[in-house]
Design a protein around this nucleic acid. Sequence first.
DNA 1: ACCCAGGGATGTG
DNA 2: CACATCCATGGG
Length: 291
Amino acid sequence: MKINFDEGLCKISDLEEFDPRDIFTCGQAFRWYEEEDGSFTFVTHGIVANAKKVGDEIILKGVDEKSFEEIFYDYFDLSRDYKLVMEELAQDEVMKDATDYGKGIRILNQDKFETIISFIISANNQIPRIQKAIEKISEMYGDYLGEDENRKYYAFPSAQQLALAKPEDLREFARVGFRDKRIVEASKLIASGEVDIEKISEMDLEDARKELQTLPGVGPKVADCILLFAFDRKESFPVDVWIKRVMEELYLKEVTPKSKIASRGREVFGKNAGFANQYLFYYGRENKLGK
DNA sequence: ACCCAGGGATGTG
DNA sequence: CACATCCATGGG
């Protein structure tokens, strides 16, 4: 991998395992927009940026040397060798197909509070509607970041900001339904320090999962998503309806309870369970497996 | 009209 | 412990 800064752009070369389309549309992140030129504009950590693959080069706009070092190197998980991850995983035909299909995926290290709220919203919901709700919440409660010819941009609100939201407003304008109170209550618990995100980062996996589940709206599946997408616990294996379908159809060959699928996933894929999960989710959902 | 979506909370056995 | 039901909302 080579990094190069010039003309206000950050260019990454010698890195095959990085495709903005795979990274943003694979289901892990919600705050992105596909532009007409095929690039992806995204908002994270209070910064608006744009990623485009041109030939075998990645071009990042809105990323300077400072923010690259402080945020985006970690955000894009650039210290990890995804070629190695895929090699370790692709021991069977299913994972071979799945990693080949999603070979440009990287699992982002996203903002922790934003990920917690985003996946509270995800419960029994659909990805396009989750995206709309999060965008609206950012517009209503987050800091204004600027605009371009396409849209205005807002940071995702802090726990302190979102703790002041009214459930009825979240319901009426962000259309979050029954998740309204959960969002505000979870924000309050985090804003007050009663649930300490930094402490959770230091805990071992099971304690962290338990602590996250003390938040309203966070159960086993949502906790696993939060751990995987924001707390760098790549061995997590969240089981939603798609993973359930894929695992039953391709590995287990019979209908199986979600809790058993989770333990089976961790058992089969081990330290790479989170990567396997994301490749399978992307592969299964995009190809409408089992539907 | 009915079913489903990156499920969780609550109540029951 | 394992299940069953309810929870808003909008699209198929």
